[in-house]
Design a protein around this nucleic acid. Structure first.
Lengths: 155, 155
DNA sequence: CGATTCGGTTGTATAGTACAACGGTCAGGT
DNA sequence: ACCTGACCGTTGTACTATACAACCGAATCG
């Protein structure tokens, strides 16, 4: 498979569109089932906070194309669950720097582990090479779409 | 790029996990912006109805892992918008066979076109070969996950 | 025929999200 | 030094998508 340069761009785009959408549809459902205790979005934001080691709510909003009110509430939830901490920035009293708490880091680690296991299960029969290439494509796709959005215009 | 068999499975899985999730997060947002008139889920279901040319609500639910109540309401919405028609099945009075209306087919076509355009824009600098391979990987991934879900167990 | 299963609807609850209006805080220009 | 505007975040409100449970009517099987 994937042998050909004979597949027209349009057909591939159509498949990509459909499959990415299908994935998105299912992602929420399974995420909710795998981690009922940690809502999907919170999980994602927590992961981002963890990786960034100190980011602002506005950054999260920009990164995920979310409204700041949404982020505000999500962060509030995470704080209520004791998973993140807000520290006022010393130099700018408007911003809050977000950090995962101990508990947050733990929850995140365990969620990541079990999620990784689910993916491993699902992709068990893929070769390491295919996995690497698929990952590369996804990265490339997402990177492209963040920097060049057709809909970040005012509305 | 993507040259190596040296990338460990785990690293790739991690990237795939993260990037697919990130994608899912963004998908909704942009979909809503591109087609404010046609809610994302309705669009997906409508597309499925169109391709299948006469399917039942239960089929949709099974295919997308949705509760039948969800599908019921989505279909009701589509009907209210005049985009689908329900025809009682002659042989089984319980089922309703769903068909796109003229208007439904039109809306779908235009939505698909503009969505395709958005993808083309985003993936402008990908080679046809890369597109084909990416599409193939996505298909493979989604096929795998539908047939082998770890969470379709009772709960 | 009665019990069960199946397809679908409706009631209720929840997550996630957007938009708009607001309250503080900072930074520049006059 | 002030006002003005930009920026960060919260809160009010509304809507979509979704699930679960309870239900109704039709089919099917013993």
């Amino acid at each position: 498979m994937t042998g050909g340069a004979e597949v027209p761009r349009e057909a591939s785009l159509d498949v990509i569109q459909r499959e990415l959408t299908a994935f998105a549809r299912r992602a929420r459902a399974s995420a909710a089932r795998v981690h009922p205790e940690l809502p999907l979005v919170s999980y994602t934001l927590l992961a981002h906070i963890d990786v960034q080691r100190g980011c602002r709510a506005t950054d999260l909003a920009a990164h995920y194309l979310l409204d700041k009110s949404t982020v505000s509430r999500q962060v509030a939830t995470l704080e209520r669950l004791g998973l993140v901490e807000r520290r006022p920035a010393p130099d700018d009293h408007r911003v809050q720097v977000l950090h995962p708490t101990e508990a947050g880091a733990e929850v995140l680690a365990s969620a990541q582990t079990s999620r990784l296991a689910a993916y491993e299960e699902r992709l068990r029969d893929w070769s390491a090479d295919d996995l690497a290439q698929f990952a590369a494509y996804l990265l490339r796709y997402n990177t492209a779409s963040t920097s060049d959005l057709p809909d970040s215009s005012p509305r």
